[in-house]
Computed example of a mutant assay.
Amino acid sequence: MLVSVTGGTGFVGSHSVAAFLRAGHRVRLLVREPSGVDRALAPFRLGRDAVEVVVGDVLDVEAVSRAVRGADAVLHAASVYSFDSRRYASMRRTNERGTEVVLEAAREAGADPIVHVSSVAALFPARGRVVREDTPVGRPRETYMASKAAAEAVARRHQAEGAPVVITYPPALLGPHDPKLGDQTARLRDVLRGLMPMWPLGGLPLGDVRDTAALHAALLASRGNASNRYFGPGHYLSTRQYVQAVREVTGRPLPTIFLPARAMIPVGLLAGLAQRVWPWHIPAEYGAVYICACATRVDENADTHGIVPRPVAETVGDTVRWLRGQGHLSARQAGVAGEDLSPVTAS
């Protein structure tokens, strides 16, 4: 099967591409920077010669059409995932308009399935205490989440029209081999660098990127027989449980103050305004506080295509080991998790 992939040089995309190739599929990538292909695939012992490359952007209708032409299936994983206020304009364009362009082109090309990588955050704030496949699209007051909700609405419209669009809802993801050191991985690094001694109360859904990649590969194997919405395997953790998991994995005390999330929202808003003019990243982000305030659990019966999430300790431990191995953390910062520098498994 030929699978066209957008976002293939990102965290979810690169792991999914590796899973597709291991399953024997051929892969074509739509990329803005061809130089990023080798960097993204090298940890999986793959090179640029393992995939076909089309140069272009998801906002470029012609480039997208070339990328999906003749494809049996499409994985749309391209998005801007960040709570950084400096990236608000690009995430609005890429996440909503890019989804419109890619899904329309994939339908015209006759691809089946067309997998749209959404986010569980697209369903927040939820009306009930859990989210499930029929939970309405969220109406969040945060730019990244709002952009994913808008993209979710696009994907659901295609589903309502009978298109073979499958939506996946990954939780916040950690794991090794993050080619662009994305938001969640960088946040864990900042925790261990002592830059986040204050956390909002609340919680977050957390999963392993390798499990979400396995879900995407499984969806290709069930072509024509898949349902149309799946949750990425994961766990719901309170922020206290998250910090405690990092303490246990690293053996470090990590003194932390927990404050009500809604009381911290004004701090996040001020930090976002300052970030627009301050050149260095400010760890206190409105979006991160907001999601802790409104995140709810995924229904335990929600469909994950039978994939069981790996333990949180394994995910956090492998991420810390990878950060240490890449030089993003010192030996002291990584604690006992950084003592084993053997390669972290990519599957």
Results as ranks from 00 to 15, higher is better:
P136L: 01
S82F: 08
A186W: 12
G207V: 03
A121I: 13
V289E: 09
T296G: 10
Q244I: 00
A186E: 14
V27I: 08
V267L: 15
L220T: 04
Q275M: 10
M145Q: 14
P136W: 09
A274L: 15
F11L: 08
P233W: 03
D178Q: 08
R229Y: 01
I307N: 06
P171G: 08
Y144E: 03
N95K: 01
R93A: 15
V54T: 11
V54M: 09
A151F: 04
P113F: 06
V166Q: 05
F258T: 11
L220Y: 07
R229M: 01
P266L: 08
R247I: 11
S4G: 13
L259N: 00
S16A: 15
G10W: 03
A293S: 15
F83N: 09
G335K: 03
T143R: 13
V54P: 05
T239Q: 13
P125W: 06
R157V: 06
A151C: 05
L59I: 07
G36V: 02
Y242T: 13
I291Q: 13
E152S: 10
R69K: 14
G327P: 12
S16V: 07
P176D: 02
G8S: 05
A218W: 11
S118W: 06
V316S: 00
R92P: 00
Q275G: 12
R297I: 02
T185C: 04
M91P: 10
L46D: 05
T315G: 06
R69F: 12
Q241C: 08
H216I: 04
G317A: 04
F83V: 04
S330A: 11
R193V: 07
S342E: 14
Q275P: 12
R247K: 15
E104D: 15
F83R: 04
A18C: 09
H305G: 12
A331K: 13
D38A: 15
Q326G: 14
A213M: 01
P34W: 10
M196N: 13
V130E: 14
R157P: 10
I282Q: 07
C292N: 15
V137E: 13
A186T: 14
L192K: 02
E33W: 13
F83Q: 05
